[in-house]
């Protein structure tokens, strides 16, 4: 008679694609290595917050100030921890009252006394705060978060408009943000002009993980109601700095030394849903109400949403035989190749 050899079970689930994931397995694995925003840092206070990233449901909370993102599933019986609460720095499961401390370990089982098994342990993820947002990397967070240097520049006002949910892939949304030929068409009510559709040739320089595009044109960046503030014939300089997969900075030079920095941080909730965060900084008009910035930001991205949600296929095609580029698409060509180079396949989801 030989006795069965039984190895103790491990508590930490390996990084794996969630059930019912909408991503191709390889794409999910690639995207999981990167940092993605899931919440506004200031909103994570004394209540657990529910978010979804790459189809994984997360609970985000603070334990004595420390930020924690964990799988929103109690290891005991699968209850949603985000429906619970935080007490004395511990996250309390709403189902049986189990309490988890900031390191993920279970510290209290109300229905019993005595030792607590190691397996009662949250699956936690790499987390950091930057640019007013909470960023999570499901795959360990070993890659650095891309930089948004203007955010902490002295003299710049930090603005965090509400996020916008877009029923489209993060790739399509990001490519829309860097597109310079659509201003005259989609944004003719907010800032651009159908009589000014020509895209002058611009430069694209490949960078590690992405590219920089420098675009000079006469397309104003003022909202229509403020366009009298730009001198006649003013040349607007827009610099796009993009890092794959979904981190795109735009710096716009305004008249009289004004500078506007916009971070298009598209979070892939799923292959077909994007939560768009747009931290903004500016060194001018800092006395004007931020609500006006919120409203303009919403107007512009709603204009995009009307198209981006209906693009077909939903996923940005990375095979060059799909879709037909035009000369204005230098930056989107570079973007698609950067996505290919980090290992993404031809589709995010079918």
């Amino acid at each position: 008679m030989s006795s069965a050899q039984v190895a103790p079970l491990k508590f930490q689930r390996s990084t794996a694609q969630p059930r019912n994931s909408s991503f191709e397995p390889n794409d999910w694995e690639v995207l999981s290595r990167y940092w993605h925003p899931v919440a506004f840092a200031a909103e994570i206070q004394d209540k657990p917050f529910s978010a979804t990233l790459l189809d994984e449901r997360l609970v985000v909370f603070r334990s004595n100030g420390q930020l924690i993102a964990a799988r929103d599933v109690c290891p005991h019986r699968g209850a949603p921890l985000s429906q619970g609460w935080v007490e004395n720095g511990n996250l309390v499961c709403p189902y049986h009252g189990l309490e988890y401390s900031g390191d993920g370990k279970c510290r209290h089982i109300p229905s019993q006394s005595g030792p607590i098994p190691d397996r009662l342990h949250l699956t936690t993820y790499a987390t950091q705060e930057a640019y007013g947002l909470v960023w999570v990397s499901l795959g360990g967070g070993e890659l650095p978060l891309a930089d948004f240097p203007l955010w902490n520049e002295p003299g710049f006002q930090q603005i965090l408009p509400p996020f916008i949910d877009i029923k489209a892939s993060a790739g399509r949304q990001t490519e829309g943000f860097i597109d310079v030929a659509h201003f005259a068409w989609i944004h003719h009510e907010s800032f651009a002009d159908r009589q000014n559709p020509v895209v002058p040739q611009y430069t694209v320089t490949r960078r590690e993980n992405g590219f920089q595009a420098m675009y000079e044109s006469t397309v104003s960046n003022f909202p229509k109601s403020m366009q009298h503030r730009a001198p006649e014939g003013f040349i607007w300089k827009r610099t796009f700095d993009v890092e794959a997969p979904f981190f795109a900075r735009l710096t716009v030079q305004f008249p009289e030394g004004g500078k506007l920095g916009i971070l298009n941080a598209a979070s892939p909730v799923s292959a077909k849903l994007t939560r768009l965060f747009v931290p903004i900084v500016r060194n001018f008009d800092t006395d004007l109400p931020v609500e006006d910035v919120y409203a303009f930001n919403l107007q512009v991205f709603e204009e995009d949403r009307g198209i981006v949600e209906l693009q077909c296929p939903e996923d940005i095609p990375l095979d060059r035989a799909d879709e037909a580029p035009i000369l204005a698409d230098r930056s989107s060509g570079a973007y698609r190749r950067a996505l290919t180079e980090i290992g993404l396949g031809k589709v995010y989801a079918r």
């Binding site: 694209v204 060059r320 580029p325 000369l327 698409d329 230098r330 060509g333 698609r336 190749r337």
Partner: peptide, 8 residues
């Protein structure tokens, strides 16, 4: 490589 469309 064409920077726009990837043609080689």
């Amino acid at each position: 490589e064409c920077v726009i469309c990837g043609f080689l």
